[in-house]
Design a protein around this nucleic acid. Structure first.
Lengths: 202, 202
DNA sequence: CCATACATACGTACCGGTCAGTAACATTGT
DNA sequence: ACAATGTTACTGACCGGTACGTATGTATGG
């Protein structure tokens, strides 16, 4: 019964991970942990169990593969962000604190390596680089949302507060990977709360 | 009169820049602007007008050259920091604000590329890498001093305030190079002042 | 029912260029 | 003479990227 086998396969079996998926998964892991410039395409295809032409059939260049990795990272980032937002409907202050509490916790994990977006922008200062473009767009949108949330809190100077929160977040990303456990990033939520408090009064 | 010529030369002429100095100057410039991994030793010696063996006579490896660059950067950093400190003796709050005001201004310059220390740590996540070690030591010392200054201000939780200031600083470094002109780093001093204000009250 | 034809997906082997680093020797200035 | 530098040529490893051949399944024609 060949048709039955077909149906069974398409229903039960995992959809046979294509080479492109395996490559992107491995690239995500290696790029994040060790940096994009530090990882060669040979190592990626080796760990993915595929060959180099398979990589270049799915991605036009290593730079574009890096951009794809960051687009994936972007999706996951907003999932985490919106999770904190959805947990406290109509309460932007609680939303931010919830998000930052989680960020602070993640920065204390031993294999924490900061924000993939931020790191990529450091690795590629050149304007217009595919990876950098994705990173910049993510940050611009984050800034927009933080400023909007600061305004919703009723801050006198909401743009300044929104920017201050962004500074604390980026600082947490960086010092998380610089100091590791016991570093200043653990205090990001507390400081954000103080900053919000000071920005609302008056 | 050979001795007269010697004296004249040692008094008037620039001290004949040694190859090591030229190399380190060029390396400082290129490493900071484009990143350490992005610059090859060939480009450094080419721009310095020297040859590769000269580089390896003065520096045991590229990694050690990068570490030397960061040690130089470290000195310049503490000069800038102490300049702000010395301008307001006995007033740690004014010292911090003066330092951050300058940082905020530097982040708005078009060729701003963040903190060389921070960038190097992002480029070299591997523990024990010569460049990373210099970077980590700098940050640990900066944290120590910020916490001490927060205590001198009379903050209730001085460690939290010191760490908060460090987060703002690192955030300014990063978002300075991410956003450029008009970015959130311009608001770092204002936010630090708000955070200090909130941390001192009770 | 089977053969041919085509598309999809993958692998083998290789390209020129650049990487960090070095050996051996010549040149310069003091 | 001596110390610092330059000159030339080279190494083996790795870089991103590609030309070209191969397996497999599927659809079509007889």
């Amino acid at each position: 019964m060949p048709s039955d086998n077909k149906i069974e396969a398409s229903l039960n079996a995992p959809p046979a991970p294509r080479a492109a998926d395996k490559i992107l998964d491995v690239a995500r892991d290696l790029f994040y942990r060790e940096g994009i410039r530090a990882i060669g395409v040979d190592e990626i295809v080796k760990r993915a169990g595929v060959t180099k032409p398979s990589l270049y059939r799915s991605f036009p260049s290593k730079d574009e593969l890096a951009a794809s990795y960051l687009r994936k990272y972007d999706l996951e980032f907003w999932e985490r962000f919106d999770e904190a937002v959805d947990a406290h409907p109509g309460n932007p202050r609680a939303q931010i604190i919830a998000f930052l509490t989680r960020v602070g916790k993640r920065t204390q994990k031993p294999d924490y390596r900061g924000c993939g977006m931020t790191n990529a922008a450091v690795e590629y200062p050149e304007r217009g680089h595919p990876a950098r473009v994705v990173s910049e767009n993510n940050k611009v949108e984050l800034r927009r949302r933080l400023r909007a949330m600061a305004a919703a809190m009723g801050a006198a100077d909401s743009d300044t507060l929104g920017d201050g929160l962004l500074l604390l977040i980026e600082g947490a990303y960086i010092s998380g990977q610089l100091f590791g456990l016991g570093g200043p990033a653990a205090a990001v939520a507390r400081n954000a709360d103080l900053l919000i408090e000071a920005s609302l009064k008056k």
